[in-house]
């Protein structure tokens, strides 16, 4: 019994240490500048949200926030459609060369974005999509689609073939079966896909750094990097910016922890 309490105690300390960088950042973002002389673990005595207002309006984080939100939502929504449709074909339809399509998607799991970023940038520039959100969205979709095709495939494989057959005999077209029969069953896979793609999209820096040089188009990641470069000494502003970037995904995580955990273990290769 004593050993068990000792274990909980040790784990409790580790848990506090793990969240402390975030807590300290929240503290700093809420402190008036005069309180910065205090050690970082002193909670703010005189809570102020001035830094948030400053960063949100003057720092341009309002624009960055909505740019990021737009890209992430579109990414997640389109990903659900294209990945599930491809997986539907791979699981329920008969056609020649299926194995080659599977191998093609398998290759995608092995390509690190970092390695191909230079030609990816060239292609997007040559079709005139630099400084557009569409360019970033297309690149995001391409680089992650494999993961989600396999996620949907492994989910669809568990759906009884008889269900598909029965709908066919009733005269439904493949698209109707996909839309009305298969997708409603696949809600868990849809949720996982939406959350994971949203998260990846929200958090990415490298692609956005190259593809969105214009300030109006920037996302939070690039905005924060830029802010860090020009306002190095603005500790409170940087903390507020960091928290603005972290809050939406932290909230999503706390609400959908089980889905995240499942998705992150399945999609771990990316």
């Amino acid at each position: 019994m004593v050993a068990r309490y000792a274990l909980i105690f040790v784990l409790g300390i580790i848990a506090i240490l793990m969240v402390s960088p975030l807590i300290l950042t929240v503290f700093t973002s809420l402190k008036p500048t005069t309180e910065l002389v205090n050690p970082a673990w002193y909670p703010p005595l005189d809570v102020t949200i001035d830094h948030y207002i400053r960063v949100w309006t003057e720092g341009g984080f309002n624009r960055y926030f909505f740019n990021t939100l737009l890209i992430s939502i579109v990414d997640a929504a389109v990903m659900i459609v294209i990945a599930s449709m491809a997986a539907y074909a791979l699981v329920f339809l008969k056609f020649r060369g299926k194995i080659w399509i599977q191998i093609l998607f398998l290759i995608g799991l092995m390509i690190p974005v970092t390695a191909i970023i230079l030609p990816l940038y060239s292609i997007i520039r040559s079709i005139g999509l630099v400084n557009t959100h569409l360019g970033v969205i297309l690149a995001d979709l391409a680089l992650a689609v494999s993961v989600f095709v396999f996620m949907f495939t492994s989910y669809f494989v568990g759906i009884p073939k008889a269900l598909h057959e029965a709908a066919r005999i009733d005269g439904a077209t493949e698209f109707q079966i996909y839309r009305r029969v298969v997708m409603p069953i696949a809600v868990p896979a849809v949720v996982t896909t939406a959350l994971l793609e949203f998260l990846w999209s929200w958090n990415d820096l490298l692609l956005r750094l190259l593809l969105l040089p214009r300030d109006e188009m920037r996302t939070l990641s690039v905005g924060l990097l830029n802010f860090q470069g020009t306002m190095t000494r603005d500790v409170t502003g940087l903390s507020a910016g960091t928290i603005i970037m972290a809050v939406p995904v932290v909230v999503l995580f706390l609400f959908f922890q089980r889905h995240f955990v499942r998705g992150m273990t399945q999609g771990a290769v990316k």
């Binding site: 958090n203 995904v249 995580f253 995240f260 955990v261």
Partner: peptide
Amino acid sequence: AIVLPVVIS
């Protein structure tokens, strides 16, 4: 607490 930092950008 341990998994939370995974979702931070």
